[in-house]
Amino acid sequence: MRNPLKSDHLLSMVSAAIIWIIHFLLSYGIVSLACAYGYARSRLLGLNSVMLGIGFTTVVALILLIYTAAINYRKWRHELNLSASDISPSPFIALNSMLLCGLSIIAVLWVALPSLMLPPCAT
């Protein structure tokens, strides 16, 4: 099976936004469940479990976004080296996907920032 990120597939163009949305939902889900069920003060390995959970999801999301950006960068550079007679939407899709990865990296960090600065269940 071909990797859809390496082709002109719609998933290639929206994968960064999907990663950000999943990170957003997981981050707020972790905080909501921890506050609702009283796990906000629990500690794991000496760290707050909510911060640890959000930190883990942030690292995974950043790794996936960097991987997606690298694939799209290679695809963009490869398509630019082709002759002008082979006109295709591939460079456009790859460049937009790469730029969306950059925007999604900023959004993931922006979502994770409050968990580092504020207590999870401030009253």
Results as ranks from 00 to 15, higher is better:
residue 88 S to F: 02
residue 99 L to E: 01
residue 80 L to T: 04
residue 101 C to W: 03
residue 19 I to L: 08
residue 41 R to T: 12
residue 47 L to H: 09
residue 47 L to F: 10
residue 3 N to R: 08
residue 100 L to V: 12
residue 30 I to T: 12
residue 25 L to N: 12
residue 25 L to F: 14
residue 100 L to A: 15
residue 85 S to Y: 11
residue 39 Y to A: 10
residue 108 V to I: 04
residue 3 N to D: 15
residue 61 A to S: 14
residue 67 Y to W: 09
residue 26 L to D: 01
residue 32 S to D: 11
residue 48 N to G: 12
residue 7 S to C: 05
residue 79 E to Y: 07
residue 112 A to T: 06
residue 106 I to D: 00
residue 74 R to N: 05
residue 34 A to P: 05
residue 39 Y to E: 01
residue 72 N to M: 00
residue 19 I to Q: 02
residue 120 P to K: 03
residue 105 I to H: 04
residue 59 V to A: 13
residue 74 R to D: 05
residue 91 P to T: 03
residue 27 S to T: 15
residue 64 L to F: 13
residue 69 A to P: 00
residue 8 D to W: 03
residue 43 R to Y: 10
residue 10 L to I: 14
residue 54 I to R: 00
residue 57 T to I: 14
residue 111 V to W: 11
residue 11 L to I: 07
residue 81 N to F: 00
residue 90 S to Y: 02
residue 13 M to E: 14
residue 24 F to A: 09
residue 20 W to N: 12
residue 30 I to G: 11
residue 24 F to M: 13
residue 24 F to L: 15
residue 57 T to M: 12
residue 2 R to P: 15
residue 4 P to A: 04
residue 95 L to R: 15
residue 73 Y to N: 05
residue 96 N to Q: 04
residue 25 L to P: 08
residue 87 I to H: 05
residue 116 L to K: 00
residue 44 L to F: 13
residue 82 L to M: 12
residue 121 C to P: 01
residue 7 S to V: 05
residue 5 L to G: 08
residue 84 A to H: 08
residue 80 L to I: 04
residue 47 L to E: 08
residue 5 L to Y: 11
residue 88 S to R: 02
residue 27 S to R: 03
residue 68 T to W: 06
residue 1 M to F: 15
residue 49 S to R: 10
residue 56 F to N: 11
residue 75 K to Q: 09
residue 78 H to I: 06
residue 107 A to K: 12
residue 43 R to K: 14
residue 60 V to Y: 07
residue 101 C to T: 02
residue 98 M to L: 14
residue 110 W to K: 02
residue 2 R to C: 06
residue 34 A to S: 12
residue 122 A to C: 01
residue 98 M to N: 04
residue 26 L to C: 08
residue 117 M to S: 11
residue 23 H to E: 01
residue 59 V to Y: 03
residue 94 A to C: 00
residue 34 A to W: 06
residue 68 T to S: 12
residue 18 I to T: 13
residue 110 W to C: 08
residue 64 L to P: 07
residue 1 M to I: 15
residue 9 H to T: 15
residue 111 V to R: 05
residue 52 L to G: 07
residue 47 L to N: 08
residue 51 M to S: 09
residue 121 C to W: 13
residue 37 Y to R: 13
residue 90 S to E: 04
residue 62 L to H: 01
residue 16 A to K: 11
residue 13 M to N: 12
residue 91 P to G: 04
residue 84 A to C: 06
residue 10 L to F: 14
residue 41 R to D: 09
residue 70 A to T: 10
residue 118 L to T: 07
residue 11 L to F: 14
residue 100 L to D: 06
residue 62 L to E: 01
residue 1 M to Q: 15
residue 7 S to M: 03
residue 94 A to M: 00
residue 121 C to S: 13
residue 34 A to N: 04
residue 11 L to D: 11
residue 9 H to A: 13
residue 118 L to W: 09
residue 40 A to H: 09
residue 56 F to A: 15
residue 103 L to I: 11
residue 98 M to H: 07
residue 70 A to L: 07
residue 10 L to R: 12
residue 13 M to Q: 14
residue 102 G to A: 12
residue 22 I to H: 04
residue 86 D to T: 05
residue 67 Y to V: 07
residue 28 Y to C: 01
residue 88 S to P: 02
residue 40 A to Q: 13
residue 87 I to P: 00
residue 85 S to F: 13
residue 94 A to K: 02
residue 96 N to L: 06
residue 50 V to N: 00
residue 23 H to F: 06
residue 77 R to Y: 05
residue 101 C to K: 02
residue 86 D to Y: 14
residue 28 Y to I: 08
residue 62 L to P: 00
residue 58 T to Q: 07
residue 56 F to H: 06
residue 104 S to N: 01
residue 60 V to D: 08
residue 90 S to Q: 03
